[in-house]
């Protein structure tokens, strides 16, 4: 799509673009290029000699059992966050769609957690789940559940999944509600007159018509779980206990800055880049087809 009427100036557009292009080159393209270049180098531990090793860093990373374990953990974490953030959101949206009064007030409250920083969300849930004093941990102990996210990896994972999902429910809710409200009421009325029960109407009409929204949210939530939950993990568990809550982003940060293994950390960064590119391409290709509403 192009405009027909434009301004003829030749120099002005470059001046207008200059600030953004300058920042993009210095802080995006240069470091990204460096990351790709460094991923092909092997540095000796003291940093005296550097050697070009091609794809060996990638081979080393992908064959490393610790990396594979982190990859699997990241999938588990992302699946948990996505499911826990989307299913309750859909349920709430279906319910709010049916009430006439109070929908706006409900929306306001449900969307509040979206405004909260991931690390703060993590701190709130960590406090509820603190072994000896937490408001949720206390009754768990009364029921005889030996709960301690500081020691038990599964408990720690549960806390970071809940905190990450809690933050995202309001966002999903907004999009599901918008999707539901765009479904023509006449369709539902026709099905009701034909005698379709409420549950049947949901699965045969509402849910299929919502599928573009659902797919879109799936991509957004997976991206969120992969890349935006660093704050939750860093503030709540620091990847621990052991490595039980270490996800890909956390490992790339840890290996690069704490363990200072530049080659392997860069290889991890490049793998992450490929994942982002994949998710972005899916999102944009799909958006073109979403135009009908």
């Amino acid at each position: 799509m192009e405009r027909k009427v434009v301004y003829p100036q030749k120099l002005l557009p470059y001046l207008l673009l200059a600030p953004q292009i300058a920042i993009t080159l210095v802080f995006f393209f240069w470091p990204a290029g460096q990351a790709i270049w460094m991923s092909t180098l092997l540095q000796d531990p003291l940093g005296f000699s550097v050697q070009f090793v091609g794809l060996e860093n990638f081979e080393a990373v992908l064959k490393d059992p610790a990396y594979v374990a982190t990859l699997q953990r990241t999938f588990l974490f992302s699946f948990g966050v996505t499911a826990l953030a989307m299913i309750p959101a859909l349920l709430l949206a279906v319910m709010v769609d049916r009430v006439v009064r109070g929908a706006t007030a409900y929306r306001t409250i449900l969307v509040v957690p979206y405004a909260i920083a991931p690390a703060v969300a993590g701190a709130l849930w960590l406090f509820l789940f603190q072994p000896s004093i937490g408001t949720i941990a206390y009754p768990l102990r009364l029921f005889g559940i030996d709960w301690n996210p500081r020691i038990d990896g599964t408990d720690a994972m549960i806390v970071v999944v809940i905190a990450s999902a809690w933050k995202q429910i309001g966002y999903n809710f907004l999009f599901f509600l918008a999707g539901l409200q765009s479904i023509p009421k006449s369709l539902l009325e026709a099905a009701a007159i034909d005698g379709a029960s409420e549950v049947r109407r949901f699965w045969t009409i509402v849910f299929p018509l919502l599928s573009p929204t659902t797919f879109f949210l799936l991509v957004i939530n997976i991206t969120y779980a992969f890349f935006d939950t660093f704050g939750v993990i860093h503030a709540v568990t620091q990847g621990g206990p052991g490595k039980s809550t270490e996800v890909l982003i956390y490992k790339a940060w840890y290996d690069g800055l704490i363990a200072q293994d530049l080659g392997r950390s860069s290889a991890q960064a490049v793998i992450l880049m490929v994942i982002v590119i994949g998710l972005t391409v899916i999102q944009f290709r799909y958006v073109e087809r979403r135009v009908h509403y």
């Binding site: 292009i21 993009t24 210095v26 995006f28 460096q34 940060w253 860069s266 960064a269 880049m273």
Partner: peptide, 21 residues
């Protein structure tokens, strides 16, 4: 396109070199 591609380069994927810059 240069601007568009930055969508695919979040801080998280270029931590170490960005700090060097």
């Amino acid at each position: 396109w240069m601007i568009f591609i930055t969508l695919m380069l979040p801080v998280e994927v270029r931590i170490v070199p960005t700090i060097q810059v």
